[in-house]
Design a protein around this nucleic acid. Structure first.
Lengths: 217, 217
DNA sequence: AACTATTATTGAACGTGTTCAAAAAACCGT
DNA sequence: ACGGTTTTTTGAACACGTTCAATAATAGTT
């Protein structure tokens, strides 16, 4: 491993540890540099801005999502049950980072930033995340007329759930649990309904709406 | 009018003008104070943080929304047509602030901030905005089993459209236009479908999901 | 009018993210 | 080993948001 890579990794690690312990705003670039054993300017050599260090947080979230999807796998034949189990496991896994997520969402949402969930730079993570949905729900949706779109739709749904969770400042996260319960039921019903001939006309619509999110993968 | 109120108004006005001309980040608190004819510290006496000055931008956006809803009123009996006309008029009205909106969304999304669309401080604006939807679409949805929820749902939908618009960095905003066209069609269809007995079971779900957004008004 | 309490205003000072010119280190062909 | 080129590292300097103790203006009371 090149020295430069090691230096970069040291900075990433220091940043993530400090973010997790003290929060994003309370952690200064000087803290990170000191913890990583480099100078302030050197940290900026590898990361053009403090915001860019948030990417390590992303990768961590994704890893947790992946682990959770395997640990709490439900093989129920009911889409709603499997969806709810999956999301509850995911939310449990990321719960330790709730406070940090609340701080970080402001940079994640910035349109020009590399960190927003629709950016080119996060494409790889996005694809990998959709892949999880493909694997977990593949057998249930394989015969669906919109089978190719559903992983993207479910990924978008999980983004919405994450947002709901971020905005949930209650103690036990009960509102989010309720939201997951109800929204998974609704989403499952709509997905089932959309197999009916009555919904034939909506397929093209759904496809057109999701198309911009499905390029390049 | 008390002098204090006039001072506050001067700061608000200076801030909005500078934000619109130079953008949010390029405008410093020192610029605002100077343009308003007060000292730097004095600006902070009225607004605890620069972010709080974004509220004037909100109010402006809302006023534009209201104007647009009256100017481009469609009385079509088709929900889709009326929805599309309404949203296109709204997007035209806010188009001059596209770049500013892209900068400001980061503070608007902050969960702890007074400026996020779900906060207590923005409740009044939120209610007034929903009221617009009630007036514009009231006659079309009055007999709907979810009539009481639909203004909130449409408000949420318009928030989604606004977000899509913010993320649209194309020249002519074509993708957003397409998005409005398709999503209004889909939403209209779903609203019509939900009158069918088949959808009876989803009404309680929808109500539960929207309930948290409907308190206090 | 005089005295007190509250409100409004000031500008210097602090900490933070970020930039940059300069120095050091690593690399590479000869 | 040497000279030149590129990569990496440094820390001082800058601009900005924010804080705060001090001062001025205003309002209220006797």
């Amino acid at each position: 491993m090149k020295k430069a890579q090691r230096t970069k990794a040291k900075i990433e690690q220091a940043a993530f540890l400090l973010f997790a312990k003290r929060g994003f705003h309370a952690t200064t670039m000087r803290h990170i540099a000191q913890a990583a054993g480099v100078s302030l300017g050197n940290a900026y050599y590898y990361f053009p801005a403090k915001d860019d260090l948030v990417f390590v947080f992303y990768e961590n979230m994704f890893a947790l999502q992946l682990q959770a999807s395997k640990r709490n796998a439900s093989r129920s034949g009911k889409l709603q049950v499997r969806l709810q189990t999956f999301l509850n496991g995911y939310l449990d896994a990321i719960e330790p980072y709730h406070e940090l997520a609340r701080e970080v969402v402001t940079v994640a949402v910035h349109p020009g930033s590399a960190l927003n969930p629709f950016s080119k730079q996060s494409r790889q993570l996005r694809s990998a995340s959709k892949e999880i949905f493909s694997e977990v729900f593949g057998d249930l949706i394989a015969d669906h007329p919109l089978a190719d779109c559903l992983p993207t739709l479910l990924w978008l749904f999980h983004l919405g759930v994450t947002l709901r969770w971020i905005y949930d400042d209650s103690e036990g996260r009960k509102p989010t649990i309720k939201f997951v319960q109800h929204s998974t039921t609704l989403v499952s019903k709509l997905i089932q309904f959309s197999r009916l001939p009555l919904f034939g006309g909506t397929h093209k619509l759904a496809r057109n709406l999701l198309k911009p999110l499905m390029r390049h993968e």
